[in-house]
Structures are given as C-alpha cells and as structure tokens.
Nucleic acid binder design. Sequence first.
DNA 1: AAGCCTATTCAAAGCGTTTTGAATTTCCCT
DNA 2: AGGGAAATTCAAAACGCTTTGAATAGGCTT
Lengths: 343, 343
Amino acid sequence: MNLKEFSNFLGLSPTTVSRALSGYPEVSEKTRRKVSEAARIHGYQPNLRARALALGRSYSIGHVLSSSNGNELVNPIFGDFISGAAEAGAAKGYSINLTIADQSSEESVFRKLKAQGSVAGIILQSPKVHDQRIELLKELGLKFVVHGRSSGVSIPYSWVDVNNHRAFEQATTFLAHMGHRRIGLINGCQDFDFAHRRLNGYLRALRAARIEPHSDLQTSGDMTEANGYAAAKAMLGLESPATAFLAASVMSAIGARRAIHDSGLELPGDVSLIAYDDDLSYLSNRQSPPIFTAVRSSVREAGEKAVNLLMSQIEGKQVRNDQVLLETELVVGTSTGPRKRVG
Amino acid sequence: MNLKEFSNFLGLSPTTVSRALSGYPEVSEKTRRKVSEAARIHGYQPNLRARALALGRSYSIGHVLSSSNGNELVNPIFGDFISGAAEAGAAKGYSINLTIADQSSEESVFRKLKAQGSVAGIILQSPKVHDQRIELLKELGLKFVVHGRSSGVSIPYSWVDVNNHRAFEQATTFLAHMGHRRIGLINGCQDFDFAHRRLNGYLRALRAARIEPHSDLQTSGDMTEANGYAAAKAMLGLESPATAFLAASVMSAIGARRAIHDSGLELPGDVSLIAYDDDLSYLSNRQSPPIFTAVRSSVREAGEKAVNLLMSQIEGKQVRNDQVLLETELVVGTSTGPRKRVG
DNA sequence: AAGCCTATTCAAAGCGTTTTGAATTTCCCT
DNA sequence: AGGGAAATTCAAAACGCTTTGAATAGGCTT
C-alpha cells in the first residue's frame, strides 16, 4: 500500500495524508485523527526509500568495520559499542548502516557513502595515531564523530573518548603505592591512539614514583587472551621478573592470569594485576568484590554518547565540534595486593 | 553531482550514462569507456536512495539485535558473525542495516522494515525453541535466513546451523571414554534452540555410556565468564563432584577454569574441560596444542553462509528453503585427560 | 547513391515521498 | 446575506535514478 492508494481510500489528497502523519499544523485535528487511525489499522507506513529521496537525507548512521585483511580480528568491544549506538539511534528513528572495508578500500568506501548519500553521518572507530581518515572525512564533508581521538591531528573534530592517560597513570600509581617496582604493561597495539595514551600515562606515573622504565616490561599487541598470556609469561620469566601487570583489556588480563597460574604463582599473593575494563556485558567484572582490580568505563555508554553527539550535529544548524571526555573509575578487586617481600 | 549534471557535462543523455555504468549491452564500447573513465575521475556514483526507489529494492540486509530489556546482554559471537555477514554482503554490494528492538517491539520492527521497504531480506539470530518470529516473517512475506533452527516450527524455512546435537554427543562420549562419569554440563540459556539441542546430544551420549543423568550436573544460563565460574564451582562442591565439564562457550570455559583453580584443582590432572568454540577472533583457541579441548565451528563462516543463502533467495526467482548444516570438529587440547583414580 | 537493417542514443514516464503555491472551504463579523 | 480573513485541502513539481518505446546514426547491400 502506497501513499496514493492510501489517500485515495481515505478520500483525501496525498498532501494532506502526508502532513497529517508527519504532524504538520496545517491539518485539522479531526482529519489527523482519522488518518493516523486508518494508518494504524491498515498498517500504512511511508516508504523509507522514497521518503529519504524526497527529504534528501537518510535516517541512517554509518559504521565502517575495518577488516585488516588476512588477520580478521574483530574488536571484542564492537558488540557492546554498537548495541549502545543502535539504541541511542533507534530512539530518534535512525538505524545503523554497517559496511566492511579493508585498509586499502576504506577511503573508497567513505567516498561511496558520501556520493551515494546513504548515511546521514559516520561513527569512526579505533583511530590510530595521526589517523588519516579524520582529515579525509572533513574534506569529504561528511558529518562524523570519532570514538577515541587521534594525537597529531590538529584540525578540530567531534569525539568521545576515555581519559586513557589518566586511567593508566592512576592504575600504575596504585601499584607503585603497593610497593611494586617491576610493573609490566600489556598494552594494545601501539598504532592505536588509545594505546599510545595509555603508555604515556604509565610512563608518567613511573617517573613520578621514580621507577626506571624498562622496555622488557612493555609489550603491545592484539588484545586477545593468547597475547595476554604470552606477554605475561615472558615478563615473569625475566631475570628480574614483573611483580605486577597492567592489562589493556579484561581479555588480556584473563590471559595474564593463566600465565601467572602456569608459572606456579598466586594472584594476588605473588603477583598483582589491574585490567582496563570496558564493562562488556558478557565479560562482566561487576561481582563484589570484582575479580580484577580495574579501571572501568562502559563502552556501551560511549556508543550512546557518540551517536547522540552525531545526531545533534546532523540535526543542528551549524557544525559543532563537541567533545566528550569520559573518566574511568578505579575499582578495587581481588587481583591486587602489596608486593611480596622476598627472602 | 547527480546524473543529470554528469550526463550534461558528457554531452550524453542520462539514459545512456546510466546504462553505460550498469553494463547494459545497448551501449557502444567506446562510450562506455568514456563514461566510466569520467565517472572515476569526477567521482560520480549514482545516489543509492534514488536507485533503490527506481529499482524497487534496497541493497541492504537487515539484522535485528534484540535487547532483552533491562538485561542488555550482547551476544559475544555477534561481532564475528556480523563481520562475516558484512563481508559476504559487501562482495555483492549489500550493506547491513542494523536495528535494535526489545522483545515487545520486535514484531513492530519487522513490520516496519517490511512496510518501509528498507531491507531486501533479514537474518534472524538466536532462535528460541518454537520461535514465533519465523512464522511472523513468513506471514509478512519477508525473505529471511535463520542462524540456527527452531525445534517445533514445522513450516519450511531457510537456515544455517551447526550440528549442536552431534557436537555435544561427541564431546560427552569423548569424556566418557576417558573414564569420566560425573560430567557437568554448563549450558547456554535453555530458551535458545541451540542449548536445547546440546542438552539432547549430551543426554544421548550419557545414555549410550550407561551413565545416569543428574540434574545437579546440568545448568544453563548466560554464557558469561561469571556464570561459567558459578556453575563449575557449584558442581565441584557436590557430595560427588564433577570430574569433567562441558562448557557452552570459551567464555564460560574460562570461568570454569577459574573455578577449578580456585578449588585447588588442576586442569587436566584433576578435572577435564571441553568447550564449545565459536572460533572468535579475539578469543582464539587455535594455539597448538589448543588450550581447551573443544568442539569447534567458525561463527564467522556461519555469518558468511547465512548471507549467501539470503542473497540467492533475493536474487533467485523462486523461493528456496536452503538449509546448511555445519559440522564441528573435535580438537584435542590441553584441558582433558583420563579420570583421576582416587584412593 | 538509395534503401534497409542494426547498433546507438534519446525523451519521457515512472518509483513513492515531501513540499510549494494555489484553490477551496469554513468561520466570523457587519 | 455578503465579504474577508483564516483554516484546510489540493494539484503539481520536485528528489535522482531506471527503463520503455521512439528516434537517430551507422554500416551494408544492390
């Protein structure tokens, strides 16, 4: 059933029906009621494609999932992030348009999204240090919000990020106060901006505590269980082994925990461990007390915030470069304790 | 730049340009080359919304993410599944349309997708036992493929599923052959069809091995680390404790592993553990030897297969009810061993 | 060079909305 | 009852594409 048929059936013009349904004031309350009642009963809904064409905009928010070719690593936070984003969008009638692109085709995907007009705006994920895509998106004139920031990009843009620097500085300091001086950092991939900031926060705290940083105690890589295991295992095997760890995700923390057990050590008796906790729904660390001492910030909430920012940009008149910095909370769980005195 | 401008610029009619770009035979090779060259240089791409309207179909595949209200649990397999789906879709120019709905609004979301014509077809996720949505989708005349099956639904429909029954039967038998007789099942939520089938596979193997099933040894719930821990902990505390576990996901297996260590037991010395492994990219169990003995099937592959099935249904003339049953492989890792003889 | 058939190209009519500007109705006032 | 303003309603023109049916150009044959 299309508008023409439906309005014929009602004995009204398409104009009136369209206006009645969109809530314009030029239509009498009586006919509006009649129309919306009939629409409900007969299940009439305006065709979204036609509507988008006439309106010149699509009620859809683009996400481009990047598949680093070959290595098809899906970010574990993706599910929770997108679910938050979808919910925030749904509240205003937006749905999510998901595309996938490898590094080489990403630019052309953005251009296509722009030319085809299939999205009203874009959420950019996992920015790298000096991420080229930000300038590209500005240049293309696409509206976007970045989940994260990109060090080295000087033009203004809109973002939602966690205070990663402060989070890792705080966590490192916490361990230092417990007497730990061999603190291993199991970081995410260095290319990513958030990993970069976390490293800086860690180094800053070490400096403040007058602890010499050691490259042996700093690793970075995919935030998988396996990598967490390998990194922790290596740092426990050093001549002067780590007595505490900072893991970039609960997933790597789980791997580290396995390495600790494998090495015949106890948590938190022999070794301490702090995780960065994205508060993922299927990997909850919200027991009381929490399993892992952690710096926590909900990635779902970040998804919601990012979409809300984007929508205010879409609906707003002027371009705004709103920025939201989320703080983490340090929650103390059962994985940390004072450094064990040897001998 | 739209078609009219672009064709004006080329000194050709919109008709010819449109045909040249869509590869119709009625246009000379010479002009086609000229047109596509110019399109590349000037970055012309047909507006997707207008195209969809004219063609009467959208190049988009719908996924409805269900947010069981309040409890916002995102399925951990979602990321990998959707990434496989997106990739298969992208190969044929389809993008993914993601909507979110809670249980109560799900039906109206389907109706809306149909009425608005915003998707060419739908992928239905995580079917329950006798899932109402299947009949609804048939009735609405939407094309769809189910990821999983639904026991109790008798009408024919298209699906991609793993042989869950066989997988759990095989895993249980494997443990029984190692001498285990107290085998705990840490299952997914019973409402879901896959959990139902897994339970049946487990029971069948027990029967074949002449082991009496015990309700103490069967739990079901969200496939989280926390639940895996709680379930295993309880079964290890029984008067006659479990000596082996089957976990419905690697995530619950990790929780179970923690419970085992917490109870002062060793893996696989004291207790054995088999996981169902979705082969998630960030939770890989592909080390050699694998950490967990597991029944494995890639959920990413399932995503690809489901979308391919859907697209053949969309593009094909007649409605086909293709069905794909994926088999799991049993990979032996370091988490299983013969039952420890006591005393 | 004329004639015919085929290979190209084009103008115009959709697709299902929204929206502009005009036409109609309604209502109130004198 | 008549006139004018305000409140409703409508016809027609976009939006940017595809596609049908008609028109033109091109290539052969005689």
